[in-house]
């Protein structure tokens, strides 16, 4: 695995149990996700995008094939060790933001840092820095309910990159945003990929953000149709 490759997927299949037959979601997918790139993953609903994202994020296990994350084979990793891999190597950005509504924007980022072992004072100063990077330095003490959709998603991005994971996986990050906010969020993700050498994967249906991708992977019927 090249040093530039953050995630390597080889021959991955995934079948969801459904009665005696089972429903195939992925049919032998192989790809590499490289550092310093923003990779767009597109495809129709039910094509297997989110399943692939979940497997790359160590949330789902493949039915067959191998998955390497940051040089570590996680295919057969013990279930109890998967959270630690996610915590150390992967940051998530969710379609619905998934911020903790009872914590301020800054505290959402602090929580992620403290889970990764930062001391409270370090976490606070690092969280302030990350909030500045995503352009929300002045919103540190605001609760999520007082932020716009775009601002919430940028807080979610700051939380995802907290602790410098190699990989950022974003699931439809612009789906709930207007065009301007969506572009702002993608711009932040692209900068993170390029300036901090993160591997960023964005699952999307949104054709408006194609220009932000360094690379585009198209998935159809559980297979990579184009890349």
């Amino acid at each position: 695995m090249s040093v530039d490759v953050a995630i390597s997927v080889r021959g991955v299949t995934k079948t969801y149990a459904e009665g005696s037959a089972g429903t195939p979601a992925l049919n032998g997918v192989s790809l590499d996700i490289r550092r310093g790139e923003l990779t767009l993953m597109m495809g129709p609903s039910g094509s297997g995008k989110t399943t692939l994202l979940s497997i790359m994020g160590c949330i789902l296990r493949p039915s067959a094939g191998t998955v390497m994350v940051a040089g570590q084979d996680v295919t057969h990793l013990d279930e109890g060790k998967m959270p630690a891999v996610r915590l150390k190597h992967i940051g998530f950005v969710f379609q619905g933001f998934n911020l903790f509504p009872t914590l301020t924007a800054g505290e959402n980022v602090e929580l992620s840092l403290e889970l990764k072992g930062f001391k409270p004072s370090q976490a606070k100063s690092e969280a302030r820095h990350l909030m500045e990077i995503v352009g929300l330095g002045d919103k540190y003490n605001e609760f999520p309910r007082n932020l716009s959709g775009g601002q919430k998603q940028r807080v979610a991005v700051a939380r995802a990159v907290a602790g410098s994971p190699e990989v950022i996986l974003a699931d439809e990050p612009t789906a709930a945003l207007d065009s301007h906010s969506g572009r702002t969020v993608l711009d932040v993700l692209r900068q993170l990929a390029r300036q901090q050498q993160r591997a960023v994967v964005v699952v999307t249906h949104d054709n408006r953000i194609l220009e932000f991708g360094d690379r585009m992977i198209r998935i159809e019927d559980g297979l990579i149709a184009a890349q």
């Binding site: 994020g57 949330i59 998967m82 959270p83 630690a84 891999v85 996610r86 915590l87 150390k88 992967i90 998530f92 969710f94 998934n98 903790f100 509504p101 992620s112 889970l115």
Partner: peptide, 16 residues
């Protein structure tokens, strides 16, 4: 429950 799901997805240890 959704927040606890998010914590789990982020990789928070069960103990937390």
């Amino acid at each position: 429950i959704r927040e606890f799901g998010t914590l789990k997805a982020m990789g928070a240890p069960n103990s937390y």
